[in-house]
Design a protein around this nucleic acid. Structure first.
Length: 581
RNA sequence: GCCUGGAUAGUUUAGUGGCAAAACGUUCCCUUGGUAAGGGAAUGAGCGCGAGUUCGAUUCUCGCUCCAGGCUCCA
């Protein structure tokens, strides 16, 4: 398995060489930089190259032409002088050569056909036979070495497979993924919109999308009550002082909407997070160790002024409502509470059929101490507590250096969408820092004042991101309990419409979201429309059905469930609505 | 924020330096049907916004806004 991946990487890296060779033939003035294999293909970055996607086919043709003469990759060992001479006109390669030789690494060139590149190796054996099934996918800008301080290069993405079938399957999968894009489905199914007049990154929930949102929210309220949370509501704006206390101001000012100045001289900010508000509620009265843990939950609306290029459908927005809560507990309770938080995640995800996810432990970057608050011992303890809790679970975890919050490490749940995108849905922390900043306290058994540990958690992230994820997860075909329209009744002819309306009333009374398609269209057209709208159940009503006081049921998957009487229809739907969550 | 590309009826798209096209949708008429599109008619954009070039700009140029693919960032 591992070997297979390695072979694939070698193939793709070889293909990157081929891409660079073709580009250099077509645009000799371009400066090559690097060209690695990546998860689903490869890329190569160039400076001084101005091309558009229309040029990609031309490059592909040239690649096929060149590949014929590439019977092998020949390794050439060189010393520093030789390497420098070979890339004298390429500052990027010179930079790399300088670094490699400073580290004492051997310098190697690889020659294939007439093309030579600086490379540490890792290629396929027979490029002329193996480099056949590739496709250039897109071009993009990318900073040299990933730093926005550096030059913006032109990146060409492509992919390559050992066989034509694998390539075609992958390309078909990309096409399929486009159909599941939540932005496309959001428009087609009328779930949400973003209006230029309202503002970038500000979501307007349409009636159908709002049903999904409210169903989720209702479910969360019931569930979290059972799990020992108390619900609160806090306002969307706050005086600036709270954010100086938290330490977010002035450092994160750029990520907040600018303040409103009031006549009394106070600045008010739209809240970028709910934490300080919940802290104020905790602080509202003296707390005893007997009260702990205190778990305060809210679908809190936050605003963050994300950079315009970051905005992405529902997944990255400027205004959103978080499935947020803060748990105030003693140090001894922290691990147990954190375990419970992770179990709540598992409960939610299992119910929704989300099976692919992992944890990401975000630690601070020790070389950038100035970015972080708090002392060494606090960071160590917070990390240890979270690791202890994770050890009790069976969820894969990766570690990321440098992604920590400024006041502590965090653990994100990353869930994988059906079309291969990954999203950080939920951020969780054991926070040993903010309690002190906000002067939070409880009285312990000995009558001494202690600072509570704060656990931040948001299993379902924000409504916006989470529903965006669910749209892609289900491909728009929501389970019955979430479906905006649960059943559509299709009268065959106009004389059946009154009975259809009558049944609709009955279903509505039974808490089932039913509609009637009363248009003057043939039944086939109505079925087609309901199927495209991914309505779970269609109920056909004609003479036979009225006669038998029944309904002929068809699912959106095209399965004919035959005629049922009204009572059976109702219990079929009610049972499914109640059990499928 | 940065790079590249885009913006034409409610939606999806075609197109042109000289009156702006189609399909779907919507409305009406005919049809009253048995499991993924029955027929006809009408309606609807002045081509993202602003400026420039031109006799004339939706089309060319510049700026801006928004969208897409990336990069960077993400309390």
């Amino acid at each position: 398995m591992e070997n297979k991946q390695e072979n694939l990487d070698h193939l793709r890296h070889s293909c990157a060489h081929l891409l660079a060779a073709a580009v250099m033939e077509l645009w000799p003035q371009a400066k090559r930089t690097i060209g690695p294999a990546i998860e689903n293909g490869f890329y190569y970055d160039f400076d001084n190259l101005k091309i558009s996607e229309d040029d990609l086919p031309k490059i592909e043709v040239k690649m096929h032409e060149l590949a014929v003469s590439w019977n092998k990759f020949e390794k050439i060992d060189v010393n520093r002088q030789e390497a420098k001479k070979a890339f004298a006109d390429n500052p990027y390669k010179l930079e790399l050569i300088g670094e490699f030789s400073a580290k004492g690494e051997n310098l190697t060139l690889y020659k294939s056909g007439n093309y030579i590149d600086l490379c540490r190796g890792g290629h396929c054996e027979h490029p002329d036979r193996q480099l056949k099934y590739f496709k250039l996918l897109s071009i993009a800008g990318a900073y040299w070495r990933g730093s926005e301080k550096n030059a913006m290069l032109t990146r060409i993405y492509g992919t390559c497979f050992p066989t034509e079938k694998e390539l075609n399957d992958y390309l078909a999968q990309l096409e399929e993924a486009k159909k599941h894009d939540h932005r496309k489905l959001g428009k087609e199914l009328e779930l949400f919109m973003i209006s230029e007049e309202v503002g970038q990154g500000l979501v307007l929930w349409l009636p159908k999308g709002n049903i999904v949102k409210e169903e989720i929210e209702q479910w969360v309220k019931v569930t979290e009550k059972q799990w020992g949370y108390q619900r609160v509501t806090t306002p969307n704006i706050t005086k600036s002082g709270l954010y100086y206390t938290s330490g977010h101001l002035p450092y994160y000012k750029n990520d907040m909407y600018p303040p409103m100045m009031l006549e009394d001289g106070n600045e008010y900010y739209l809240k970028p997070m709910n934490c300080p508000h919940h802290h104020m509620i905790y602080k509202n009265k003296p707390r005893s160790y007997r009260d702990l843990p205190v778990r305060l939950a809210e679908y809190g609306t936050c605003y963050r002024y994300e950079a315009s290029g970051e905005l992405f459908g529902l997944m990255r927005v400027r205004g959103f409502s978080q499935n947020d809560a803060h748990i105030y507990c003693s140090l001894e309770q922290a691990v147990g509470e954190f375990v419970q938080v992770m179990k709540l995640h598992e409960y939610y995800y299992k119910a929704l059929g989300i099976t692919k996810y992992h944890l990401e432990l975000a630690l601070r970057d020790p070389t950038k101490a100035e970015k972080y608050h708090g002392d060494e011992a606090m960071w160590k303890l917070a990390e240890d507590l979270m690791r202890k809790a994770v050890a009790k679970m069976d969820i894969p975890m990766v570690e990321e250096i440098g992604n920590a919050a400024f006041y502590g490490p965090k653990i994100d749940f990353i869930i994988h969408s059906s079309i291969g995108r990954q999203f950080a849905i939920s951020t969780n922390q054991i926070d040993l820092y903010m309690g002190k900043r906000f002067g939070l306290a409880y009285v312990d058994k000995e009558g001494k004042e202690q600072t509570p540990v704060i656990i931040h958690r948001a299993p379902l992230g924000s409504h916006e991101r989470f529903i965006g994820f669910l749209i892609e997860h289900y491909g728009g075909a929501f389970p019955l309990w979430l479906a905006p329209i649960q059943m559509i009744i299709i009268p065959i002819a106009e004389r059946h419409t009154a009975s259809a309306r009558h049944l609709q009333e009955d279903l509505l009374q039974n808490g089932i979201r039913a509609e009637v398609d009363g248009r003057n269209e043939p039944m086939g057209a109505k079925i087609r429309n309901a199927t495209l709208q991914k309505v779970p159940y269609m109920g056909i009503m004609g003479d036979k059905e009225i006669e038998a006081k029944g309904l002929s049921i068809r699912t959106r998957a095209g399965v004919d469930l035959k005629m049922m009487n009204f009572h059976e229809v109702k219990s079929l739907l009610r049972d499914e609505i109640e059990t499928k969550r």
